[in-house]
């Protein structure tokens, strides 16, 4: 009775799935229109913003000296890019932020894995970690400059410091929140602790570790700019600060745009990597 009925039900589901695929092909034309609409929706506001930036100074809504039209800023940006002035500062900033970020990644992820795995270690370290995490990084900037000077070391060190905590804390929580049932299941299949860690704990904590990686990515840029503004002889933060002081306002905006492009690219790269590594996760549209 019910058994055979449910058996047939599965077959029916299969057929229905096939039909669904066919009909999506037929609706290919509908999809392109849908895509255009989507592109329109996601770009209209940013285009409006750019138009406003262009028009406002030209119509005298704002002071054109302090907010030059976007086209002027972009042409200055382009000439700075071609002359290599900007490239020099970009390279310096890139080395600093990626250096600090990479260093933090190499240190915090293994450390976080270890702390998460050994519960007693976490108990000892947690209060100290909480204290450090809740101390605003930039408050420590003077300390870093005093101890490590104005050179590259202090810049990379403070970026490293800013990236360590999101990475460390997310890695720890990733390891500690692995579904205990998965561990039980793997243990029942006779996995050794090392295998259990490599084949279950590590992959299961990847999504949480990535939350930390993205937080660290944005922290690295924030702290980079601040550190370069506080005391540096090169870098995008320095460039923005310097151009402001010498009243090169279009150059200053060019520097700001470079920073935001840099941030967007970094975030996009990390999101793409995350999607690739956690493709198995349920996507919530």
């Amino acid at each position: 009775m019910a058994n055979t009925g449910a058996g047939a039900g599965i077959g029916e589901v299969l057929v229905r799935l096939e039909k669904k695929e066919q009909s999506t092909q037929r609706r290919a034309l509908g999809w392109t229109i849908e895509k255009l609409l989507l592109a329109f929706r996601s770009s209209i506001v940013i285009i409006a913003f750019m138009v406003l930036w262009e028009v406002a100074p030209r119509l005298g809504w704002t002071n054109a000296t302090f907010l030059p039209p976007l086209s002027e800023v972009l042409s200055t940006w382009w000439s700075l890019l071609l002359s290599g002035d900007l490239a020099e500062h970009m390279e310096v900033s890139l080395v600093r932020s990626i250096g600090g970020f990479a260093l933090a990644l190499v240190v915090s992820v293994p450390l976080g894995l270890a702390i998460g795995w050994w519960k007693s270690v976490a108990q000892y370290l947690n209060p100290l970690l909480e204290l450090f995490r809740n101390t605003a990084v930039l408050a420590l900037l003077p300390v870093f400059i005093m101890l490590l000077g104005l050179g590259e070391t202090s810049k990379i060190a403070i970026i490293f410091y800013a990236c360590v905590f999101p990475l460390l804390l997310n890695t720890i929580s990733g390891v500690r929140n692995v579904d205990p049932l998965l561990i039980r299941s793997a243990r029942s299949m006779g996995l050794s602790p090392v295998q259990l860690f490599r084949k279950v704990v590590l992959p299961a904590s990847v999504p949480t570790i990535f939350v930390g990686i993205r937080q660290a990515g944005s922290a690295s840029i924030l702290v980079l700019v601040a550190a370069e503004m506080a005391g540096a002889k090169s870098g995008l933060g320095y460039f923005i600060q310097y151009t402001q002081f010498s009243f090169q306002i279009t150059e200053m905006y060019a520097g700001i745009i470079t920073i935001s492009i840099f941030g967007v690219i970094l975030n996009y790269a990390l999101v793409t990597l995350e999607k690739k590594l956690t493709a198995w996760k349920q996507v919530s549209n």
Binding site: L181, L182, R184, S185, R187, S188, M189, G190, V200, T278
Partner: peptide, 28 residues
């Protein structure tokens, strides 16, 4: 101790979400 001479099926499936159906079956 645990060993592959006994297989367990849990109420909550306990499949590894990062592995495909095939890779899950291959796990043991």
């Amino acid at each position: 101790g645990p060993n592959l001479d006994r297989g367990i099926v849990f109420q909550q499936y306990a499949l590894f979400p990062w592995k495909t159906a095939l890779a899950n079956v291959e796990f043991g």
